[in-house]
Every structure is written in C-alpha cells, then in structure tokens.
Computed example of a mutant assay.
Amino acid sequence: MALQTNYLATWQRQVRAALLVGLCAGGSLAAAAQAPTVAAARVPRAYTRAAHLMGSHFTFTAVSADDSLAWRALRAGLRETGRIDRLFSYWDSTSQVVKINRSAGVRPVAVDPEVYDLIERTLKISALSGGAFDVTFASGDKIYQFDRQEHPGLPDSATVRRSVQRIGWQKVRLDPAAHSVFLPEKGMRINLAGVLQGYGVRRAAETMKKMGIAGGLINGSGDVYCWGKQADGSGWRIAIGDPARPHAVSSWLTVSDLAVVTAGNYEQYFTVGGVYYGHIINPHTGYPATGLRSVTIICPDVELADALDDAVFVLGPVDGLALINRLKGVDATVITDAGQTLVSKGMQLNSYHSAAPTAAANPKP
C-alpha cells in the first residue's frame, strides 16, 4: 500500500502542475482529463518455495496479486508440513509414533487427538481395502534390497512368511476415551509413511487457504493437491510419468480443487529374471506387489488418495480398479507391467500415446 500511496501522491502533483501550466497559457483542461484516475491493478502471479520434508522434495506454489501475502502463506504452509513431519516421524525419538512403537507389547501410549485421529483413519482405509493398506507394515522384517539391480532370486518362502508374522492392522488397539494407541506384540511397529505426505499436503493447503490464497499447488514428491486457478486463469495441468521412459510423460489431465497422487515401482526396485519387484510390499504375503508399474489416484482428498495408491498397487489391476469403482468421487489410472494403461469408470485422461487408455470394464493384468 505504501508504494501505491506514493504513486498517487506523485501523480496528483503532476496533475496540479499540468493544470497550472494550462491555465497560465490559456489552454484547455483536456490534457489533464487524459491522465489516469487510479493506479494500475496488480496482476496475480505464482510464487514458489521448495523444501526437503518427510525425506522428500516438496514444492509450494501460491497464486496471488499480493506478494507479501503470498510469501507469508508459503512460509506458513512449509512450517505446517514441518510440524507434521516432526509429530509423526518414524525416526525422531521425540515423536509420538516412536513412543507407540517403543511401548509395543508393554503399555498403551496416550497421544494427541491429531495423532489418534490420523491413525484411526488409516485403520478405516485398511478395513476398506481388506488390509492391502496397512500401517503396521513396518513390523515386517527387511529382507529385500531395492537397488535397481538384477538379483539371482527371491528369499526362500519360509523367510518371507516369517517376515510378516507381526503385521496386522486388526491388532492395533485404540482407546477413544484415553486417546491411546497400543500395539499388543513386542516388535510391532507402525509407520504412517504411506499417508503422511498426503496429510501434510492437505494441512498445508488448508493453512494457505485460510490466509487468503485462492489458488495454489503443493507437490510432495508426487502427492499433488491444487486449488483455484493458475495466474493466467487456467486450470492446473498435471502430468503422469511414463514408467518405461524416465522423465517422460505418459498422460496428463487438467484439474482444480483435486488431488492427483502417483505411486510407482520404477524408482525403488530390483529384478529377478527380468521381472520388476518394487518397494511396495503386500502385507498379506510378504512379497513385493506385482502386476503394476504405476498407480495414480484422483480425488478431492489428498490424504485419502495417498493411502489408496498403495492399496491399489497391492490389490493389482483388476481388484484395485474394482475397489476404486466402488468409491464415490474417486478415479484412478494404472499402468501395468506390460505397459498397458487402464482407467476407472468415467475417468477422463489425455494420453500422449496414439493408443487410448482402456476402460476398466474388463481390465487385463
């Protein structure tokens, strides 16, 4: 406002000078009438900040005509995501998640309502997906190395079975009166990594919206949520990567007020006999989920989308898309190991390939 006030004061002095010159010369007031009456309106533009949070790369974008507001909102969104990272960290010894894990088989741990509520929501997703999404996956033994190399074979079946003995979302005991969480077996652990980036993005977006940012986009390493419009008034165009060609795009869509969340096994994987085994483990079997290279979920809730992409990955192309087709307001597109793109019912996708995506009526693995 100070810059605008100074501009108006300068313009007013110039008008008075022009009037004085015109009157002294016997001229008309036409020249003064041609001067502008208000300062030019400020044009919205996009402001962006990047940060390393939750072990991933985040970018925060705010669209605003007020640069001071935009930068304040970006800092607030970043701080909110950092707060969530510390509160739910699997590694920080002061986090409430670590306290729950340390007390497994010993005692319940009272936690903040925010922590209790998120864990409760994840267990509901576990029930919805038949356990394909399971925050107790951290109870499993680490028996794989996802080094992008060819391995001679998979671990023996007995080792794999033992690795998942302590996994089981049904075992988690919640006490709503005490806001406590109890893992009944020693060695059990929870890890909210499968939903935490989505939750962090959602809370950051809510913070920025409350501050008056009408348009923005937050990308937490593939967990994208956008709202409003871009600076030029257009919608947000989100690209979906091509697993067969790193840094290339397989398809895109234009969205607003939606989350677009993608999970893939083309960055953390190993191969056996040319077959890809990605880092997403089937909690029922202990083996890496197979059949899909990429899963993208589109829905208004970025937290929900973040959980569903792992669930679909574990369920596979047929059962995974069947789950999505039962959910209102949720869509998905998946890319199979064979490179085929499948979509849920009603999904509109712009493909960069000549072949159109296959509808989910009779998806083929």
Rank of each mutant, 00 (worst) to 15 (best):
M1T: 11
M1C: 05
M1I: 07
Q4R: 12
Y7S: 14
T10K: 11
T10L: 06
Q14T: 09
L20W: 11
G22R: 13
A25D: 10
G27L: 15
A35C: 10
A40Q: 13
L53C: 06
S56G: 13
H57A: 15
H57S: 15
D67H: 09
A70K: 09
G77T: 02
R79M: 12
T94I: 11
V97K: 01
A104D: 10
V111M: 11
V115I: 15
L118Y: 11
L123K: 13
L123C: 03
K124I: 06
S129Y: 08
S129D: 12
G130C: 06
A132R: 04
F133E: 10
D141V: 00
K142F: 09
K142I: 12
F146H: 09
A158T: 14
T159R: 13
V160M: 12
V160H: 01
R166V: 04
I167V: 02
G168K: 05
L174M: 08
L174E: 03
A177W: 07
A177E: 12
A178R: 12
V181M: 01
L183Y: 05
P184Q: 04
Q197T: 08
Q197L: 08
Q197V: 04
Y199D: 09
I213D: 06
L217P: 00
I218E: 03
I218N: 03
S221V: 04
Y225N: 01
G228F: 03
Q230F: 04
D232I: 15
S234I: 02
S234Y: 05
A239S: 13
I240A: 00
A248N: 02
V249H: 14
V249T: 15
S251K: 09
S251W: 07
V255N: 06
D257Q: 03
Y266P: 04
V272R: 01
V275Q: 13
Y287F: 14
G291S: 14
L292E: 10
L292T: 12
R293D: 09
I297P: 00
D301R: 14
E303C: 12
A305M: 08
F313R: 09
V314C: 05
L315I: 03
G316T: 13
A322H: 06
I335Y: 00
V343S: 03
Q348V: 03
L349H: 07
A356E: 08
T358Q: 04
A360D: 03
P363Q: 08
K364W: 10
